[in-house]
Structure formats: C-alpha cells, structure tokens
Design a protein around this nucleic acid. Sequence first.
DNA 1: ATTCGTCAAGTAAGCGCTTTCAAGGAGTTT
DNA 2: AAACTCCTTGAAAGCGCTTACTTGACGAAT
Lengths: 337, 337
Amino acid sequence: MSQRTRASASRRPTIITVAKAAGVSTATVSRVLSGSSAVTPDLAARVHKAADDLSYRPSSAARGLVRGSMRSVGVILPDLANAYFFDVVKQMHHGATEDGYRMLIADYSGTAADEYATALDLLGQVDGLILLSSRIPLAGLTELARQPTPVVLVNRIERGIDLPMVAIDNFTPMMQLCGHLARLGHRRVVYLAGSDLSWQNRERWRGIEMARAFGIDAVRVASDATIEGAHAAVEEALTHEPTALICFNDLSALGAISRLRGLGLSVPEDVSVTGFDDLAVARHIDPRLTTVVSPKIDLGDQAWSLMRAGLNDETTVSPPLIPADVVIRESTGPVPS
Amino acid sequence: MSQRTRASASRRPTIITVAKAAGVSTATVSRVLSGSSAVTPDLAARVHKAADDLSYRPSSAARGLVRGSMRSVGVILPDLANAYFFDVVKQMHHGATEDGYRMLIADYSGTAADEYATALDLLGQVDGLILLSSRIPLAGLTELARQPTPVVLVNRIERGIDLPMVAIDNFTPMMQLCGHLARLGHRRVVYLAGSDLSWQNRERWRGIEMARAFGIDAVRVASDATIEGAHAAVEEALTHEPTALICFNDLSALGAISRLRGLGLSVPEDVSVTGFDDLAVARHIDPRLTTVVSPKIDLGDQAWSLMRAGLNDETTVSPPLIPADVVIRESTGPVPS
DNA sequence: ATTCGTCAAGTAAGCGCTTTCAAGGAGTTT
DNA sequence: AAACTCCTTGAAAGCGCTTACTTGACGAAT
C-alpha cells in the first residue's frame, strides 16, 4: 500500500563515524559501548549520544572476527513443526541466553545429506553445534568429531563416536507401553514407524520387539512422524488386523486416530492407540492419549550443560539415559471381544 | 558414558594454513573455495585436498566483514510452539535459501520489550529483519524504519509506519465466521481473546464487533493464544452463558474444547466453538474445527518478496491484505433449544 | 621541585577473509 | 620474431571492530 524508498544511500554507520561525531577515538567508542573499561562520564555520554543519533549498531561480523567467536551456537533439528523439538530447544535457549550465547536454529525438513551440509556450513559460523535427533550417517559424525568446534548429540547415542551425547531412554518406556497393552490382552499390534534413520525410531522398535516376551506380536508399517503421514498409513496398518496401533509419536497417533474415526472405528473400543512425547495436545484431544512423558526440560538442560562444557574446553562425561514414564489415558483399552 | 577431550589445542585452520599446505597464495584458495574465478584444475585439486585434510571451514565472520553482508536475515516471532508461525517461516525459508540467504530464527516468548531488544541486536548481524505478528510499540517500529537495514512487517499493518508490510485479512473472515454463527441462531458469544498487543487480535475483535449488525452480542474474555491458556479461561467465559465460543486461534479452540468436555459439555451440541488458522490438527481432532484457512504459503511468499526487494534496495509497494476463507466443520452447530 | 605511579585516552596492529591490481606466461597476430 | 592480447596467479589493501601498547596529565611521595 505505502510507497517506500529506503534511505540506504548513506551506508551503515561504523565505529569511525561515531568516533568522529563524538570527537573521540574509535578505541573510546569501543570501550564505552562494550563497557570493557572505565571512561570519563562526560565522554561516555557524548559517545552514547552520537551512537543514538546515528542509530549505530556494531557489526557482529567485525566483532566476531576480532574476538574469534560469534558467541552463538547452532541447533539443527529435523522438524520444527513438531512442538516436541521446540520445547527442548526452548530449554537449551534458556541456558544459552544465560551464558551470553545466541542460538541459530536450522530446520532441515529434508534429507540426511542436507542435514550434514547444513552442519558443515553452520560450523564456520558458530562456536558450537547441537544436533537434535540427528540422522547424519556415522561417517559424517566421525568427521564432525574431528572438528575443533564442540558438537553435542541429543537424542541419539552411538558407540565409537567421540562426541558428548545425551538422550531419553526410548527403549524401556516403549517396552512398558507394550506391557500395558499386553495386560489389556493385546497380541497383534502394528507399529506406525518413524524414519529408519532415526535412532529413536530404532530404539522404540527394539523396545517393541523385546515385548515379544509378553506375547506382543508386532508388525512394522512405514510412515513418517507427522499427522498426515500417519493418517495415510493407517489403511495399510489395518490389513494386519491389529488390536492396537503403537505410533512413533503423539503427532502420528493424532493422525492415526483421526483416520480410524474416519473409517468408523472408535478408539479405544475397536483399536487402542499409543503415542510418544506427551505433547500438550495429547492431554487435550478426545480420547486423551496414552503416551510416554518425555522429560524435555531435563533433556534441554543436560544438552546445554554438555555444550557449555565444550565451549569452555572442559572434559565432559556423557550422562546416562534420561528415564521417561508411561502415562496411561483413554486411548488404550481392553481388546474387543 | 564416554570420556572426552577435544583436540582443540590446535586452533582452527585459516585460509593461510590451507594456502601453505597447498603451496599457493591465499587469493587462490579463496578463488577455489568460493568458485569466484577460474583456477587451473591442478591447483584447484591441491587446494581442495588441503582444505579437506585440514577440515577447513571458512570463517563466516571474516567473510561477512569483507563482503559487508552476512547473507542472512533474521526472523522474530512470538511463539515458535505454534505450528502456524512455523509454516509461514518455512515458506519464507524456501525463498531465502533460493536467494542464498540463511535465516536466523528468534522466538521471544516474553514481553514486547524483549522483542524490540532482540530486533535491535539482531540488526547488527543480519542483512534484513522479518517481524512476524510483532508486538513492538509504534515508537520502536518508527525507529526500526530509520535503519538502513530492510525490515518487513508480517501480519501487522500500521498506518504512518514507513515499512513494507503484508498480512492476512483477519477482519473479514472473522465477521463471516460470526455470520455463520448468527445463521445458526447464536446471539450471546464469548471471544476468547489473544494478546492485546497483537494486531491480529485487534482485527479479529473488530470483525466480531462489526457482527453486532447480525445480532451477535459478544463479550471479550482475556486469555492467551495457547492450549493451556484457553483451557484455563473457559470457566470465566461460561459465566457469560454463551452459546458459542469464538477462540483466538486453533490452539485456544483446542484447549477450550478440552475444558468444555471436562465440564461435561459437548461441542457443538451444548456450545459451538470456532478457531482460526486451520492448523493440521484442526482437521484431525474430534469434533473437526470450524475455523479460518489462513493462506500461510501466500503470506510467506509475499513476505519474502518484500524482503528480497528490500535487500536489493528496490522500491516496494506493500501488497493488499491476503483474503482468508472460513471453513465450516463440526465444531459449530445450531443453538441448543 | 623532581620523580613516580596511576589512569584516561589515543595509536595502531591485527582478526580471516575477498578483491583489486600488477606481473608474468602462453597463445595470436602481423 | 616482435608486439599484443588473454588469462592465471600472487601481493597487498582493506572490511569494522577490539586491545595491547604508548602517551600524557595529574596528584602523591620523596
């Protein structure tokens, strides 16, 4: 609507512009603006005024160059659209802010190759890198471990990779979830899987397979960790005539329930459904979701601790897996007779 | 689990390290790595090998300094936890990537003052700034408009501010939504409001007030744009004995429905509920949500167009409001008799 | 009164890159 | 064979900051 021409003919003011305007040296301006050393109040005031008048913003590129650090860490994650990741990121963000670091968030809703490429080029820009539920192949991780820049792996554990890592225990609660289903009489179940590249998906499947001991007979059906993906995969899942659907996460559980309803099946009367993560929405849909409470706060805290240690060049010991609990709600019930 | 000491004793390799290793000048390394100019294949290969061997990553600070641009734009938004924002961001991200820009995402889940501070300090770091559903006071926006750095306002329109802006029409569809309710016989409704600082909230309310013409008698109840916030606000809303709840967005609709169910009321038999945004979840919960389809793709595209123009120092004309349509599903029904 | 010590302010050296400019080598033309 | 052009490569100048190091002024100590 409004016509607009920016007054960018005049280039951005630099520290020299400010110094001249205030009648002092650039060193003084720098000292005033970064508060690194005492300056006569009179001069300081003049510098502040000049900076304000010129709307001066220090170039973080120049600052980063001379300081040898941009005071920022990068976070790479598969899908910011999933509120789960965001909650973890938020917690790390707290820590980062407290320690004076900015956070660059990069979502690669693409292939694993993209993720690696993103990681590599972010490395030139940040002081540290946090990889959330990373799907980078082992060779890539090995290479990342050789970098002088600290890299932290979250929700992925790999032996033989020399990187600090922290993750939630996916295996145990998934096995417990199966135990819960077994006690309700379920035998034939379908696992609506996540990505094969995801460590969490492998762990969850491992938990399900372990539950064969309880008599759980599970089939995997490929899907993806989204509402729509699960929605679309339900039909195939039903060909296996399961009495329960174990979904990779809450989002897929939501999509599955929606599809089941569309097919005239009710949850949990006809089919039981479980999720994973305990998103806010899991407590508020109908039926409320039986799922696993993932301690996102802990996870975020511990991830940042590892990063902080890395940034300070300290030796770190990766903490043990963080336990997660099953929470039983109304989306699971006894096997229909 | 694994003990860990990083080999950061040796500092990061610089372009000089690579040049020495390859036996060429730094200029040649730069040319090879940035592909800016032709280099003999033999030399190029030597440079690439040296760079690989050293795991060299160019410092983006240095690069940004000399180029006068970090090739990145900042995006500031109120709450990344809301998938709506993310969808818009994703679309802008496409455009940015295509044009060779990286995107820094900053969520301020805090006060408006934080948002302004974030904007100011991001300005030193990016080539452009996109403000999503910004709540920065007018004075702040005026100041931002004075900066040489391009700033784009998304989902907020303010007269007298010399910034390019693009937004979805909130007013019209909200009025139509009320019309829909009116036709179903609703008169007493409660608006579960969003933040008073939000332009979108003001516009939506304006649409509701306009609907007095249809006989809609609306009361505002303070809430916030989250599941939990709406959940908590329902009891107060019910004191006004409404037959319908108009929620600020889909997330609040979700929370409201959950609370109503908890109180033994069913939707839409006892109370009708509407949302706004049409998140994926709106189509998949029970009852499916009557809401407004916000054209996020368009919005993201147009926002990036404005930003690109700004980055290229072109004159821009803010486009007209983007129309949004009401979609009627099962969360609204006739007034109970 | 002279010598120090102290401390505010300025001078200048780089941080790691890109890019202009100059140099030199190879290929073309006369 | 000389003169010219074209093209690859290197040398060096900054980009905008911070931070030793230096200077100089002023008060305290001798």
